[in-house]
């Protein structure tokens, strides 16, 4: 554990809390892509199957449990409790175009060819693109509420901080995982356009509005 990974994990946790809090307080999931949330639930489910087979630390077990539980809670809020507020007309990204290539790539490029390992690899590939339905939704409506922007910023920061963690781990332990690194870089690059808008607009008190 180092400061980059810890702050990365905290950014991830904060993102989830921001999202759940926003939906709960406003009693609405307007502007939130249910499809991205379904993909995240799929990511955590396939990655944290090792929760029952291997133990790393109390911290790891606790965080995995929290990410799993909150991802299903988010889906419940969007598709059941506040279903009437779900903006499905703007949430039209075809997620099979992300799931199937991620699965194919995981079958082809992995560290070991076994069930848990392929699912872990699939989760890494899928996570790198899981935000696309949400970004697509923002681009389709041309705007995002500030709170949604804060959520996206925290969520994007998490993998960017993990990249610093990987650099640090390589320098100090010689540890590196090429699959996680390449996917993590792809994931962070997808947020770059959003980061730019966030810093130049949202932080200056303006609404995140895309040029027409």
């Amino acid at each position: 554990m180092n400061i980059f990974r810890l702050t990365g994990d905290l950014a991830h946790l904060i993102a989830i809390i921001i999202l759940l809090h926003k939906i709960w307080k406003s009693r609405s999931c307007a502007g939130i892509s249910g499809k991205s949330q379904v993909l995240f639930a799929l990511v955590y489910t396939t990655r944290y199957l090792d929760l029952v087979t291997s133990y790393v630390s109390i911290y790891n077990t606790f965080m995995k449990f929290v990410f799993l539980a909150t991802s299903y809670a988010t889906i419940y809020l969007i598709y059941v409790k506040f279903k009437a507020t779900y903006d499905h007309n703007h949430d039209t990204f075809r997620i099979e175009f992300l799931i199937l290539p991620s699965l194919a790539l995981a079958l082809l490029i992995n560290h070991y060819f076994n069930f848990l390992e392929v699912l872990w690899t699939f989760s890494i590939y899928l996570e790198s693109v899981a935000i696309l339905p949400q970004l697509f939704m923002v681009s389709k409506t041309g705007e995002a509420e500030s709170i949604t922007s804060h959520y996206l910023f925290a969520l994007g920061s998490y993998r960017a901080l993990y990249i610093l963690n990987w650099i640090y781990r390589y320098a100090t332990e010689g540890h590196y995982d090429l699959i996680a690194i390449v996917a993590g870089v792809v994931q962070t690059v997808l947020y770059c356009d959003f980061f730019y808008l966030y810093i130049t607009k949202v932080l200056k008190g303006k609404k995140l509005q895309l040029p027409a």
Partner: peptide
């Protein structure tokens, strides 16, 4: 166990 060695992150 190789799985455990590598995947110690979230």
């Amino acid at each position: 166990s190789k799985h455990l060695e590598r995947h110690d992150e979230l």
